[in-house]
């Protein structure tokens, strides 16, 4: 099943839908393509990484275009998809700048988002039949 799903080249619109789903729910793109083991690992690892970052008093950065590094961090944070919006709705991720773990928390949150972007690119390659 996995091989058949992986070898099937997706249509263009389905590819972009797959990428959107893969972005919104980490690992969902791989699960959709029948790569269950990878999908579950991404879902668990990236979500845990994001939650760990919040627990370490990390901050969900605002889209402040006057501060380019803050804006770039915000884009990276958004990369994790659904967990980002859940955290925003719950009002967590304000970040405690005086906490000793603040920078560690930011690193976890940003890395989770960037890794999920790589996962989305992997889904794109699989859907296009390149992998």
């Amino acid at each position: 099943m996995r091989a058949a799903a992986a070898q099937r080249t997706q249509t263009s619109s389905l590819t972009y839908l797959l990428c959107a789903v893969a972005w919104f729910v980490p690992g969902a793109g791989h699960l959709w393509l029948g790569r269950r083991q990878k999908g579950i690992v991404f879902l668990v690892a990236l979500t845990l990484m994001f939650v760990f970052g919040l627990w370490l008093e990390g901050r969900l950065f605002p889209f402040d275009m006057e501060q380019p590094l803050v804006a770039l961090s915000a884009i990276a944070d958004l990369g994790v998809g659904c967990p980002y919006f859940i955290a925003r709705l719950m009002g967590v991720g304000r970040g405690d700048v005086v906490a000793i773990t603040y920078e560690y928390g930011n690193t976890f949150i940003i890395a989770a988002g960037l890794l999920n972007m790589l996962v989305v690119l992997d889904v794109f390659d699989i859907a296009k039949g390149r992998k």
């Binding site: 990878k38 991404f42 990236l46 760990f52 976890f108 890794l115 790589l118 996962v119």
Partner: peptide
């Protein structure tokens, strides 16, 4: 160590197919 564990897990699963 925790960060290295997460990142290495994701990279390994992303770049290799055989368990």
């Amino acid at each position: 160590i925790v960060f290295a564990l997460f990142v290495s897990t994701v990279f390994a699963v992303l770049t290799r197919d055989d368990p």
